[in-house]
């Protein structure tokens, strides 16, 4: 050992020693990991590995779980929903469904709705004189409305829709469900991000997007949600929770009774079906 410490290494010896050190470290830790993984092996459902292999592996947390492995586990346990993952493509989702032995239709049916009923009911903070279009207008102090999530009604979504499914009436965009092909362009275009995706089976939706507190909403808009929670209290299915001063409807629980529509003091919750909507609200 003593000789080794004081020795002058030739280049070849030097390289060999470097390689040697790395090799020894690699072997030691490789062996350690092997032993530990044998000793602490946890029995894993084989399907879990397969499912994990099919998932996108982005570990983005978009599903609400702590990474792809967690989603794979909950899928195998039958708790999760394949559609929770926004990244994995349809083909792989089909494969997962096959592994799990469940039906998968290739994505749930859904529709787009505009979550704002403001228009003329939402007060203007100032005038806007300039180039038309919501996107342009929202660049200047986030638009002319007092409410930061109000539909500006300037029709940027109308312009982007290839099917003429959107029109602006009374200052609020409206999506015609029969013409809409669910491309989602409008939802991506809207600078206020108030066009949202809800299941096609949904009966009611919240026609407001404000997360402000009650008093601020009162000042800004007569059709704004004040987060009072009356809908949540009256929902017999406990399908409504108030998150950030706004009701969130759990469509798996909602049975479409429409109590929330009737009870809402601000008439913020609407039926998706307009005929039913008109009958109750007018």
């Amino acid at each position: 050992m003593y000789n080794l410490l004081n020795a002058e290494f030739t280049p070849v010896e030097h390289v060999l020693i470097v390689v040697g050190i790395m090799l020894v470290v690699a072997l030691v830790f490789g062996f350690l990991i092997m032993v530990v993984s044998k000793k602490f092996a946890v029995e894993v459902d084989e399907r879990e590995e397969t499912v994990l292999g099919c998932l996108a592996g982005a570990n983005c947390g978009g599903c609400g779980k702590a990474g792809c492995a967690a989603l794979a586990r909950s899928l195998v346990e039958g708790k999760g929903n394949i559609d929770d993952c926004p990244v994995t493509d349809k083909e792989n989702k089909m494969k997962i469904a096959e592994v799990l032995g469940v039906e998968y239709s290739g994505g749930g049916e859904f529709i787009y709705v505009v979550c704002c009923g403001g228009g003329a009911n939402a007060k203007d903070r100032n005038d806007y004189i300039g180039e038309a279009g919501c996107i342009r207008q929202s660049m200047v102090g986030s638009g002319r409305k007092l409410c930061s999530t109000a539909c500006l009604g300037e029709g940027s979504c109308v312009a982007v829709c290839d099917n003429g499914a959107i029109e602006v009436s009374e200052g609020v965009a409206y999506i015609n469900k029969d013409k809409c092909i669910k491309c989602g362009k409008c939802a991506k275009t809207c600078p206020k991000l108030i066009i949202s995706k809800i299941p096609a089976s949904a009966v009611v939706y919240v026609k407001c997007s404000t997360k402000c507190r009650g008093k601020e909403v009162m000042d800004a808009c007569t059709k704004g949600c004040i987060g009072c929670g009356i809908c949540a209290k009256n929902c017999e299915q406990k399908a409504i929770t108030i998150v950030d001063n706004l009701p969130v409807i759990d469509y798996d629980k909602c049975v479409g009774c429409g109590y929330c529509v009737e009870k809402c003091p601000r008439k913020v919750i609407h039926f998706v079906n307009e005929d039913r909507d008109d009958a109750v609200l007018d």
């Binding site: 790395m22 470290v25 690699a26 830790f29 490789g30 350690l32 990991i33 530990v36 993984s37 602490f40 092996a41 946890v42 570990n59 947390g61 702590a66 990474g67 492995a69 967690a70």
Partner: peptide, 27 residues
């Protein structure tokens, strides 16, 4: 090398010995 191996070892051990902690730490 050492750190990467250690993390791996700790992960395996945690997974076996303390499932809740392992899940809490997740990714």
């Amino acid at each position: 090398f050492v750190i990467a191996s250690l993390v791996q070892v700790i992960e395996i051990i945690l997974k076996k010995t303390s499932k809740p902690l392992y899940e809490a730490m997740g990714i």
